[in-house]
Design a protein around this nucleic acid. Structure first.
Lengths: 159, 159
DNA sequence: ATCCATGCAAAAACTTTGCAGTCCA
DNA sequence: TGGACTGCAAAGTTTTTGCATGGAT
């Protein structure tokens, strides 16, 4: 098996900005101060951020940004392909750079005690997953594979 | 559409009823007409049902059952261990018999076009997943592996 | 000047809870 | 009879949208 963490290579934010611009221009959308601020906030924030997270970060750049604008802009990011929306079961939508943006797909290990999130990737699992889809004649558009448990630190704290 | 699940044995509902009764008795909870109706409705319904689904089914047995009672009873099922709550990203909570109840864990293939849900199980994937957890020194408590795509029927309809 | 974008607030969509009456044990 | 249970409706949450104003092209 082959395992790797997610943070090996940093995403090239210039490429992502270009991709976003291309999408917006194609759709006749406009570059505004808010969108630029939210973009930078999203890029500088950690992964798996909520709308509230991005709102708080964006307001450090421009204090007047509203919730709805962040909401709509994250939607825009998702449509343009630079971000993906995720749900980890706590009722909140979370956003992260898309697999395409980071140049590699990853899944998640989530600590139920401290909420730590670790990314992993395993080609063998992906291949078996493709085989499952073929067997059921599904075409795969996306997937999520989340492992919930206790991280090393919390395991020690418990014992 | 056929199955590679690790054995399609039907759950033994009598065992589940006993387990539920034991839990309720332990907690000093009461057996009521509504709870019995909801239990039967849940057992007779298909998997991955929403609260609305169970409500509709329950009302076939007893027309006076309210939404909140179904909500609270499904919560009770989850606490007792006979059911599990799931979220497939469409904003609805869904319930199914727990892995423990069905005696086998399974994951899901979900059609993004018609919302069809197919269950699958793959031991090799599970083993690789265990290996990933070991690598990161996580202990696994649960996991979810969902593959989103197009089912055979919707693939045909699109082409 | 267009007409897209923003911010606010209201509306939706679900879930959760308070309460007065009901019913099991 | 006491305390749990129910149904209704109200309150929470979080997401989504309508609308008048502001702003990019």
């Amino acid at each position: 098996m082959h395992v790797m963490t997610g943070g090996d290579s940093k995403p090239d934010f210039d490429v992502l900005r270009s991709k976003l611009e291309a999408y917006m221009s194609e759709k006749g959308l406009r570059s505004t101060a808010q969108r630029r601020a939210i973009t930078e906030a999203f890029f500088s924030a950690s992964d798996h951020v909520t709308i509230e997270d991005v709102l708080a970060e964006s307001r450090k750049i421009d204090g007047r940004i509203g919730y709805a604008t962040v909401y709509r802009t994250l939607k825009l990011f998702t449509e343009s392909g630079i971000a993906e929306e995720r749900h980890f079961g706590d009722g909140l939508s979370r956003y992260e750079l898309s697999d395409e943006s980071t140049q590699h797909h990853h899944d998640h290990l989530i600590c139920l005690s401290c909420d730590a999130i670790v990314e992993f990737h395993d080609d063998a699992i992906e291949q078996l997953q493709d085989a499952v889809a073929r067997r059921f004649e599904f075409s795969i558009l996306s997937h999520k594979h989340e492992i919930y448990g206790l991280c090393p630190k919390c395991r020690k704290d418990q014992s």
